[in-house]
Simulated scan of single mutants.
Amino acid sequence: MTDLDALQAVLGPGARPVRHALTGETGIGLPPFTDHHVHLHLIDAAALTAGGIAGVVDLGGDPDALAGRAAGTPRTAYAGAFLTAPGGYPSGRGWAPDAVVCAVTSASASPGVAGGARTAVDEMADAGASVIKVVLHSGGPALADDVLAAILDAARLRRLPVIAHAEGAGMAQRAVRAGVDVLAHVPFSEHLHGETIAAAVADGMAWISTLAIHAGSPDAAVARTNLERFAAAGGRVLYGTDLGNTQAGPQPMGVSAAELSALQDAGIRGPELVRTLTDGWPGLSVAGLATFVPGTLPDDELALPGLLAASRVVPAEELLDIAR
């Protein structure tokens, strides 16, 4: 087996042995990494590229502020504000200023109706959103079924996927039944029935990991089991950390070894682990960038998260292929 074959067996078809043209370091070149769940207003994003993250998907922020940074680095796609019921999550939270919450009061499909589902979607889309985020949270007022359906219909008109924050008993099931495209978190409130998981996979739903935020809580085991079953059934998994969420303590400004280790614990390993990082959802362009991982493959696959956490983002032209 050549060095290239060995690399690609562990890291997938995009891996290659490289030398950094400016520093002379040797290592591994990979496609650029994306964190599919962050909140940029809660962090200093400047350190992310040095920590290996080329692209981010902001899943709850001020749409006007986000529109001004989409072309910078890390490359940014965003949902804009949370679409939620009046008084629903995350209203009133200290980390969620008014601009990141949009209350939807009716299922109106007519444009321009104050508080209507169509109006809320149009506002986010017109601000440059690449995805629409809805809240299904049992800890307070929640979107009614007809309002959720109207939001989905309006998003389809704008050709945008819909992602749900689903938390509490029955909320992940609601998202699956409604036809939501992505879950912002692997379900952690309860163990899902096999029928729900099968339906999610059949519909092409994706789940964003955010496993490490549950470290030390009973939710961690629930999320791991749900993810094991979803992935084993062929479900699409996206790497995401909910960066800015401090419930599990400080998070690294870059690739999280803890998140990758939690994904490995759920059975997502080797090329599939890397694929969660390099998946381009929701159409985020990271063209011209690459991931540089100094060093060589570890002998122990369980050491892979630490290796990937040492990566950094570089212009693709700075990585030169080493003779194979």
Rank of each mutant, 00 (worst) to 15 (best):
A198I: 08
H214S: 14
D35F: 04
A9I: 02
G112I: 02
L152V: 15
A50T: 11
A200L: 10
A109V: 11
T278W: 01
G68D: 12
V182Y: 06
D279K: 01
P305Q: 05
E25W: 04
L243Y: 12
R174F: 02
L238I: 04
P32K: 06
G61I: 05
L30R: 04
S285Y: 02
L11C: 12
F230H: 05
R324L: 14
I163L: 15
P13R: 08
L227F: 03
D146H: 10
A54S: 07
V104L: 00
L157R: 12
R312T: 09
G267Q: 05
G51I: 02
R159F: 02
E272H: 08
Q264Y: 02
A323I: 11
A149I: 02
A198N: 11
G115C: 02
G194C: 13
G295T: 06
D242I: 12
V56S: 10
L319K: 08
S108T: 00
R156K: 13
V10I: 07
G61M: 09
I208S: 14
G52K: 03
A310G: 15
L260P: 12
G27T: 01
A175H: 03
A65V: 14
G68M: 07
V57C: 12
A114R: 14
A47Q: 15
V104I: 01
S311C: 04
A258W: 03
A233H: 07
A198S: 15
H36G: 08
Y78Q: 13
D299G: 14
A46C: 10
L152K: 10
V255P: 10
P161S: 09
W95I: 15
P218H: 07
A70H: 08
T276F: 00
G128V: 03
E272V: 03
V186R: 13
H39T: 12
A144M: 05
E167C: 13
A248L: 10
G240Q: 12
Y89H: 15
V237K: 07
M124W: 01
Q8D: 07
V147S: 06
A47F: 03
G240N: 13
P161K: 05
G27Q: 01
D145E: 14
T23W: 00
M253D: 15
L183I: 14
F230N: 06
E228G: 05
A202Y: 13
A287V: 06
H165M: 12
V113L: 03
L263Y: 05
R174H: 07
H193K: 15
L157K: 09
W95T: 14
K133N: 04
V162S: 11
L48D: 05
D58K: 08
V18Q: 09
V18K: 09
H20W: 03
H37K: 07
P141K: 06
L319E: 05
A206N: 11
G61L: 08
A184H: 07
A164K: 04
L143D: 10
G170T: 01
F292S: 01
P298Y: 01
V237L: 03
A71S: 15
V176I: 13
L289K: 03
E25M: 07
T210G: 11
L243P: 14
L263D: 08
V104T: 00
G88F: 03
G94D: 13
A172D: 08
A142P: 00
S311M: 02
G27V: 00
L22I: 14
G92F: 01
S130H: 10
L192P: 11
L66F: 04
F230Y: 13
V121F: 02
L42G: 12
A99P: 08
T119G: 01
R19A: 15
A45P: 05
V162F: 05
D242W: 12
I132F: 02
